[in-house]
Design a protein around this nucleic acid. Structure first.
Lengths: 192, 192
DNA sequence: CGTCTATTTGAATGTACTCAAAAGCGGTGG
DNA sequence: CCACCGCTTTTGAGTACATTCAAATAGACG
């Protein structure tokens, strides 16, 4: 149950057995069925969730109901709306399970307790946000500087496993194109 | 000299006089002339800089030499390549002064010393990254879901002061359009 | 099996880009 | 202080990338 998550946090800092035990005791396992929402716009995000099994997406809806996927998250990733979680503000995001999923969650209280007794976790959380930021900077660059076809090629290469698990409609949204156009890109590439 | 920066960090956490004194002692003031580089691609970023006066931009160059502006930073903002700084890896970014600027910098050693003696700063840095991430998420959403014209309108409303200080060429790059097209957007809007 | 959603295909359209040339502007040196 | 040079901005024509809308096909699920 906790093997994967302990390996995950240990990448950033070496924790004592005692610290990891406390960490594991504070984590709450939760299961979500396919299509279930971990969070909906207007709610306050009260979790940081580590994905033990499954796949979820984080997206936004604009006024016309158009969906923009910000993240796909699979095993060994954390998912949350950090702004909402940390400032306890209403979120703009939807976080939805794309498969039956199992996650381990911290809430504001358990996170606080963790940081109080094992302050080194502060560093883990900072580095996680930072990695996140780095991913976002790359995406912004790629969407500004590259064509949809290049972005699609990059995506396949970088996230082959997500590619196989997620519908084209959602991938199109992640890449910032319409599903129709993604389909045309694929048709073109399969001819080569 | 330190008034602005102390106000800045106090937004995230209340520090003692002693902590602030240490903080200020560790900061190193640096001046940059207009067009000077704080960082160039291939170098390791060895600073986190708070801008006391001036304006800088962070950008990337792709293979064809096309420039993509990730950030404009002015007074009361921090600027750095956090991935490069924290992992001591070569940066992909250029950080360039757009005006004669004055900044206060931490380097890896002084930051470490600060965190050692005043660990509450860890929280400040985490929240700063997080705010940064939040801005990036918004930008990604806006570039995927909105037209260039809407993005330009949003930019003027949100950052009127940057608008006035930065050339259209750079703003175009920030918005993800060519300078020519931005000029056409402006021509169209001034007709209304 | 039938229904609902996802994907493909095509035609028409729109948004933004490229290239080229002219006009504007700012800084520098004489 | 003015003239010149280089860079930025504007304008226009032609083009490319991506969208919209519509309809057909394919897949998934109860």
């Amino acid at each position: 149950m906790f093997e994967q998550i302990n390996k995950n946090v240990t990448r950033y800092h070496t924790f004592s057995k005692k610290e990891l035990d406390l960490f594991n005791k504070l984590l709450k396992p939760v299961k979500y069925e396919k299509k279930a929402f971990l969070l909906q716009a207007g709610e306050v995000c009260n979790f940081e969730a580590f994905i033990n099994k499954g796949c979820v997406m984080t997206y936004l809806l604009n006024e016309e109901g158009k969906e923009t996927v910000l993240y796909f998250s699979i095993e060994d990733w954390w998912v949350s709306d950090l702004s909402s979680f940390n400032e306890q503000r209403k979120s703009d995001f939807y976080i939805q399970s794309l498969e039956d999923s199992e996650v381990l969650t911290l809430n504001p209280q358990t996170k606080e307790e963790l940081l109080f007794h094992a302050p080194s976790f502060e560093r883990v959380f900072r580095l996680m946000v930072q990695k996140n930021l780095s991913v976002m900077q790359n995406r912004l660059h790629s969407i500004i500087a590259k064509t949809a076809e290049q972005r699609y090629t990059d995506f396949i290469k970088r996230y082959p496993s997500i590619m196989q698990r997620v519908s084209q409609r959602h991938i199109a949204s992640y890449l910032g194109v319409t599903p129709e156009f993604l389909s045309k890109i694929r048709a073109k590439q399969s001819k080569l």
